[in-house]
Amino acid sequence: MKLYHAIILLIGTTLNVSAGWLPRPVHEVRAYVYDYTQEAGNVSLLKGGKLHKGVINPAGEKLSEAQVERLKNALRSRQKRVMGAFCYMPHHGFVFFDKKGKAMGHIELCFQCGNVASSPKGLPETEWGWTQIRKLLGELRIPILKENKDYTKLYEKKSGK
Rank of each mutant, 00 (worst) to 15 (best):
K158G: 00
I56Y: 04
G122P: 03
C87M: 15
W21M: 02
T13G: 13
K158E: 08
L9A: 13
Y151K: 03
K50C: 13
P23T: 14
Y4Q: 14
R81P: 09
V82Y: 14
D98A: 04
P23A: 11
P23Y: 11
K158P: 06
E108H: 08
V26T: 08
G129N: 06
P124K: 00
K80P: 12
Q67Y: 03
K102D: 13
V68S: 12
S119Y: 11
H106L: 00
W128T: 15
Q38L: 10
A6Q: 05
S118I: 06
G48N: 10
D150Y: 12
P23Q: 13
V95I: 05
F96W: 03
E147S: 12
L123T: 05
S64T: 15
L10V: 14
E61A: 12
G48T: 09
E65C: 04
G12H: 09
L45D: 01
S64N: 12
N42C: 10
L71W: 05
G12M: 06
A59P: 13
G129Y: 01
P120T: 04
T152L: 13
R141F: 01
G48E: 11
K153A: 07
Q112R: 13
P90C: 01
H92E: 02
A40I: 08
R134D: 11
I11Y: 14
L15N: 01
R76K: 15
C113A: 03
K153I: 04
V116S: 13
D35I: 01
K2S: 13
Y34F: 04
L51H: 01
T126K: 09
Q132T: 15
R30L: 11
T126Y: 07
K157Y: 03
G160H: 06
A74W: 02
H92F: 00
A19M: 10
P120H: 02
C110Q: 01
F97W: 00
A85M: 15
K53V: 14
P143R: 05
G20I: 00
C113P: 00
G54M: 02
G41S: 07
A117H: 01
S118Y: 02
L109C: 07
Y32P: 09
E61D: 10
I144A: 03
S18H: 14
A19P: 06
C87E: 15
H106Y: 09
T14Q: 10
V68N: 12
D150Q: 15
V116I: 13
V26W: 07
P120K: 06
C87W: 15
K102Y: 12
I8C: 09
G12V: 06
G12C: 05
G60S: 08
N115C: 09
N73Q: 15
E125H: 14
L22W: 01
F111E: 01
Q79T: 08
C113I: 02
A31Y: 08
G54D: 09
H92T: 01
P120F: 04
P143S: 02
T131K: 13
F86G: 12
A40S: 09
Q112P: 10
A85Y: 13
W130I: 10
P124F: 02
H92L: 05
L51N: 01
L137P: 06
E156C: 04
G84E: 08
H27W: 14
N73P: 08
V82I: 15
E61P: 07
